[in-house]
Amino acid sequence: MRLTDLSTKTSRWFDPNVPLSDIVVSSRIRLARNLAGHRFISRCDDEEKQEILQRLKEIILSLKELGDIAFIDIAGGSSIERDFLIERQLISRNLAIGRGPRGVVIAANELFAAQINEEDHLRLCVLAPGLNLDKCWEQISRIDDCIGEKIEYAFSRRYGFLTACPTNLGTGIRVSVMLHLPALKITDQLKKLFASAKDMNLTVRGLFGEGTEAVGDFFQISNQVTLGISEEQIVEDFQTLIIPKIVEYERIARDRLLVKDANILDDRIARALAVLKNARLISSHEAMFLLSNLRMGINMGRIKEISINTINELFLLTQPAHLQINKGRTLNAEQRDILRAETLRAKLN
């Protein structure tokens, strides 16, 4: 598997042909694990990191049920390759900027990633399009069992899985759901949502932006507490309670917009389409913002001639590292803005 095999297509987790995917883009579950008998990453020298990397890599590559998989060496890769993997949500920024031997095992379908020597020795991750946390949990738990039979994890009866940061202690689980919430944003209800999320010990962060800023109304909502609540309980809360409630709020906000402010809504969507179809130079920030409006327009039935799949594809293809990998060379900011505008015009006209 080579990166260029992935770079011209959208990710499987961005598949729009699943229920609720107009609002719930994707589900992901991550498990943090460390090996018994080794120090945590911050206290490992390169030799120890290499040993951990080698062992985990061999075990994971030998797992049959993962299908077509590949190891990508992060320490040896270029910064564009690392950024590319971040844009596809297969590695964290933390792994990209880390030091010493480290890497990631990725399934060819991009629905599984195992980061080695990130903050913990092992960070397993399973993704699915739409709201499908039950399936994610079933898969990741089975993979975790297989690895746990071959290697001894750092574990105590009292504290569960021992992690480098106490915020992951216990189950080491992080359940995250990526949501597209443009109507809650337009109707100014996000602050309310964030406040109640915090009361429920949930984290909300913006996606596709640089740093923590949200561009294009995509948000990721995750659990904070990892100790004292079972994995199944957290998954069930997300799957049956938390996410359906947010989806309901977003739907109500969309319906209300259609009834009360259809003109404003249509104007916004039409302007977005006009700019995306005609711009000669466009920044990543502006493209994300306008694509988000367009995505809302298609999902609300206001635009019929463009498929949601095209939009999802453009979210990835117009990201800086994607542009450069597909062009086959590094580009400066202006060159990227030109190429981004070309890519948009080609797909939308």
């Binding site: 009292r158 569960g160 899985f161 106490p166 216990g170 189950t171 609540i229 994995e231």
Partner: peptide
């Protein structure tokens, strides 16, 4: 741990095979 984990101090959930 208590403050970041909502006052929980005991693991509930998976126990690895080993």
């Amino acid at each position: 741990i208590e403050k970041t984990q909502d006052n929980n101090l005991t693991h509930k959930g998976k126990i690895p095979a080993k």
